[in-house]
Design a protein around this nucleic acid. Sequence first.
DNA 1: CATGAATGAGAGTTCATTCAT
DNA 2: GATGAATGAACTCTCATTCAT
Lengths: 205, 205, 205, 205
Amino acid sequence: MGIAERKEKEKKEMRSLILDTAMRLFLEKGFEKVTLRGIAEEIEYSPATIYLYFKDKNDILFALHTEGFERFYRHQQTIRTIKDPWKRLRKHAQAYMSFALENPEYYDLMFIMRGPGEKIKADREWGAGMRSYDFLKQNIQDCMEAGYLPREDLDVAAFAIWSFTHGMASLIIRQRCGMIPKEAIPAVVNAAVDFMIEARKKQKQ
Amino acid sequence: MGIAERKEKEKKEMRSLILDTAMRLFLEKGFEKVTLRGIAEEIEYSPATIYLYFKDKNDILFALHTEGFERFYRHQQTIRTIKDPWKRLRKHAQAYMSFALENPEYYDLMFIMRGPGEKIKADREWGAGMRSYDFLKQNIQDCMEAGYLPREDLDVAAFAIWSFTHGMASLIIRQRCGMIPKEAIPAVVNAAVDFMIEARKKQKQ
Amino acid sequence: MGIAERKEKEKKEMRSLILDTAMRLFLEKGFEKVTLRGIAEEIEYSPATIYLYFKDKNDILFALHTEGFERFYRHQQTIRTIKDPWKRLRKHAQAYMSFALENPEYYDLMFIMRGPGEKIKADREWGAGMRSYDFLKQNIQDCMEAGYLPREDLDVAAFAIWSFTHGMASLIIRQRCGMIPKEAIPAVVNAAVDFMIEARKKQKQ
Amino acid sequence: MGIAERKEKEKKEMRSLILDTAMRLFLEKGFEKVTLRGIAEEIEYSPATIYLYFKDKNDILFALHTEGFERFYRHQQTIRTIKDPWKRLRKHAQAYMSFALENPEYYDLMFIMRGPGEKIKADREWGAGMRSYDFLKQNIQDCMEAGYLPREDLDVAAFAIWSFTHGMASLIIRQRCGMIPKEAIPAVVNAAVDFMIEARKKQKQ
DNA sequence: CATGAATGAGAGTTCATTCAT
DNA sequence: GATGAATGAACTCTCATTCAT
């Protein structure tokens, strides 16, 4: 069993190596400029080797997609410990943004990019995404129940808040914010969160 | 003169045909996957023919970009006649969304798609985009001056509102809204606008 | 007849216009970079028009070839008046070189370039070339008869002298003379003629 | 080690195969008319395969260039052993001609053909050519010092002699010698060398 | 006479992918 | 398990040429 185990582990490590390299290259060069050959060269294996670990190029994207949602979910869990629902919601938005801005290629892949076989993936993949979405909804509901937000349609509220953060993230990532100086972006994002979310806060009686 | 006129018209129609087809393919497959050959095949002309009407692939993208911003701007002018700034702002958001949802190809190209030579083009092209952005800012300022919104940082407010609408538009267009039934989308969008914008309204004294 | 005549003349002028433009472009851009479309644009006619005057692109080359030999022959006739055969021979070589260096594209076309349909052309065209070659031979024979050159094989002598001048011309035109500074070329050519030809002179008794 | 060696050898053979084929086609059709696809078809490989051995079309040209100068230089070294400078010079000219006539493709490429990026390459490539040119100059100088030639400008003498041999070679290779029957060419060349060079000999005192 | 519109053929090049070893 | 060698299919783009008008 020891041998099988080790093999298993090695296989996983190789997959990780490929995945990490692919992601690094995506980040460095942008998606469409990355080639299988490029990845292979970077890890100093032959292109053919990659096919031992992934069915094809899409399979790599697919795996990164999954990995992305995993990381995304983990990234947000840090706010779990915050007791106050309102503070938690604010931090939630901030965590969302920090993930997006620190992992732009993952974010792009997960929420912006048009992937191949959209529908097929959508169904399978959204499991992971859903978990995060439900987490957000839970948080909003907590706020409603705590009286921080009026009890409106939860789905609408979640969609609205998500749209807002996604809007910022995707405008920034896809470079549609020429009017905002690069170094000012984090501050503007924060201020925008204040403008849109903080201001919604109902005083708890 | 009649002949020259007809020729002129035919030339324009051909350009339109190419542009429309390109647009459709861009939407269906994403920018990088669209090939000149593909467009040519679709309109049943030879690839070489396209070069009679456009310098190269980028020139097509460029023309679509320009056209898109033109339409976008025109689409929003309908709200000009609305006197009350607050009503105007609401309509503004709705107009934004209706443009996006009725012209997803253009919207995608203008605000989502990653084009080649992003920066160079950005500078030239954003002239047109800026006009629309300034229009939004003016509207927000009118609301502030009319007392509908607190006098906060105008840039932040504009960015926040834009992000929100863009977020909705891009999630829908890039199909990240599996959790919302398709037919419910317009209603949800409207409700979300209420949730995010309408609720911000300060009572005028 | 007046009309037919004028038409004839106009046709010739158009041919000349095309030919001159073609040659100018060849000179400016080098042979391979000149396109029919380029010529057409230059003379502000449509590409199709050129086909009314020339069968195809080759036909233009062919016409230039003929024209080139014509000019070449005329260029050399200036030495006719020189009485002394030896002086005439020297001038002959100099005239050869001045034609080559002043009309590098013609020279290239006539004596260096690999034309299409080599053999066919060779047969027809060499008539014109031959005239010039015979002229050289006559000159050499005059020198022999006048005692300036030993009475050797005339064909060999002609070939040798022609090879020498052609060698200089083609090395210069095809840019194989990097080791000679450009401005020194005329002087070196002259000196080389002295070295190779002048020194062959037998003192007439 | 045997395997690695064989692989190495096979790789070299493939390069040679490509190079030889390219050379043959260059000679047959001229540089501009030779296509990668043409080479590929000729060797019955796919066009893509060629890119495994050469960076691009120019790289092939470059390799041939280098190889050509290598061969050319080696070809001339055979005369090194000749003691008498005058005999050596004569043999030099003959060796030059035999190289040109036995390797017309290489000769054409090295001394006649107009390649792309002429100047850039010229600088790098001429190193190899220079070696041969210097060799010729040395030989001429030896003749001067031995009293076979008058002490004139060495550069002029070298250029003159080179021009002469190059002229013969290029007229023959580019088929401008219709007036000389093919089988007579070697004899005429020899006679011309006598006419031009041998006759220059000053009697040594 | 002149041409606008169109194209077939073909250029160099790149890439994901396969497969015998 | 790993790979060197190979390729089919695609890409963008150019050009000489034709033909209906």
